[in-house]
Design a protein around this nucleic acid. Structure first.
Length: 419
RNA sequence: GUGGAUGUAGCUCAGCUGGUCAGAGCACCAGAUUGUGGCUCUGGGGGUCGUGGGUUCGAGUCCCAUCAUCCACCCCA
């Protein structure tokens, strides 16, 4: 049996890898414009980190983690998301004791054992940012503005930003009570999933897509109405900051993020038309996280973007047609191949992207190859050239040919590439 | 995890009710009078028809299982 990639994983080959480079470049540049710097953490961590940092009741921890025991029987887990690792690193290196806020970005593979489909993989890639050590609503606004700026730079205009506040533990507890007493009488009408949610995390019943559940809980109390003054004020300031900076959003009472450590601001970005998995990113404030992981009581805000989903949204866009290399060295007679190799090396050492044939193609075949690589110029080397110490440079677009001495070749090529 | 669809050359797909059904287009390679590309023409390589069983005289074509992909649910990136 042929060995294939494991379920939910895939290879990224050229030319697709070029699209990744493009995406990565935009993400990096934009984050750096906003003053974030890159952090790289291990791809696996102690299982406990995610259990504590993400929350035992979440789908991620309860059923989606790639957990394994290493040879010393340590329980390790392939990271399902990036925030917990950042919090761990922040604490481990006491990064919070320096200049605040600590502003980091990361990108890389994440792992979740879930049913694969378009836009959802078991090994997928996220880009995320985290800002630790600020409680300011302007900090919340900054990460959202950054997120929107990234979409803008990627040319993605057709998105929806959903925004809500899930309050602090205090107001959420009050809300939870209200919600439970509202649902209790109709509990039996809910779908089995929601019955389970009712026990574990009643807030999750709200965003159940099931019609029957929706009908059953009709008229349910809204979280916003239970926010304490402080949380309400914070949310108002975030909204004002967004409006002041021309970021449009949709207030969404039903937006309840699945991760336990979120407080106050929660947001999610959807791009319609990329399949069922339309959420390209989401995030929010998580004031309880660092402390829950054993660090000081400092807050944080951040978001994560799904890179596969961004690429999916980008797919309609421009196709990069740049040549793979700029120059192709073709030998008209195999006996001069060694000279061709020397010329090729000279070109490359001068920083000129160049290649040659290595399959013994005929002169014609070599020209075809050159054409397929999309080179600007071909260097032809045959008997005439060798005997008279020059090479023929063919402009593949204008078809003009030039006789150039070896000494002037590099300069000639460089000038010609620019033109 | 639940339900449904699909799985034939590198890619996109034909192949009706089981018996020249192993094909096309694209891609790749080689030629079209011998030192040169993009068009056209000709030829060529390449597939245990996802995998494993079963039914049958005979199975891409029927049945079962399994793996994978896709869709819906769930959830999120």
């Amino acid at each position: 049996m042929q060995i294939k990639v494991p379920r939910g994983t895939y290879d990224i080959l050229p030319p697709q890898s070029s699209k990744w480079h493009y995406l990565e470049k935009i993400l990096r540049e934009t984050a750096e414009v906003f003053g974030y710097r890159e952090i790289r953490t291990p791809i696996f961590e102690h299982t406990e980190l995610f259990e504590r940092g993400v929350g035992e009741s979440t789908d991620i921890v309860s059923k989606e983690m790639y957990t394994f025991a290493d040879k010393s029987e340590r329980s390790l887990t392939l990271r399902p998301e990036g925030t917990a690792s950042c919090a761990r690193a922040l604490i481990e290196h006491s990064a919070y004791s320096g200049l605040l806020p600590v502003k980091w970005y990361y990108m890389g593979p994440m792992f979740r054992y879930d049913r694969p489909e378009t836009g959802r993989y078991r090994q997928f890639h996220q880009f995320g940012v985290e800002a630790f050590g600020s409680l300011s609503p302007y900090m919340d606004a900054e990460v959202i503005i950054l997120l929107v700026e990234i979409l803008h730079r990627l040319g993605l205009k057709d998105y929806e930003l959903h925004l809500n506040s899930v309050g602090c533990p205090k107001c959420r507890r009050a809300y939870r009570e209200k919600l439970i007493s509202h649902i209790k009488p109709v509990k039996d009408l809910l779908c089995p999933d929601c019955q389970g949610r009712y026990e574990k995390n009643p807030l999750r019943v709200l965003d159940c897509k099931n019609e029957a559940c929706h009908a059953a809980i009709k008229g349910y109390p809204v979280l916003y109405d239970s926010l304490c003054d402080e949380c309400r004020e914070h949310y108002a300031e975030v909204r004002k900051a967004l409006s002041d900076n021309q970021v449009s959003y949709i207030h969404d009472d039903n937006l309840v993020r699945g991760l336990d450590y979120y407080t106050n601001t929660a947001f999610e970005v959807h791009i319609p038309g990329i399949g069922a998995q339309s959420a390209v990113g989401g995030g929010g404030r998580y004031n309880g996280l660092v402390k829950a992981c054993g660090g000081p009581d400092i807050g944080g805000v951040g978001f994560a973007l799904g890179m596969e989903r961004l690429l999916l949204a980008l797919a309609e866009g421009e196709e990069e047609k740049a040549g793979i290399v700029d120059v192709f060295v073709a030998v008209m007679d195999r006996q001069y191949e060694d000279i061709g190799v020397k010329i090729l090396t000279d070109l490359r050492r001068a920083g000129i992207k160049a290649d040659k044939d290595y399959t013994g193609k005929s002169p014609k075949g070599q020209m075809k190859h050159a054409d397929k690589l999309g080179v600007k110029m071909a260097i032809l080397l045959g008997e005439d050239e060798v005997k008279n110490s020059f090479v023929t440079v063919r402009d593949m677009i204008s078809k003009e040919q030039y006789q150039v001495g070896h000494r002037e070749l590099i300069d000639f090529i460089k000038r010609h590439i620019k033109a």
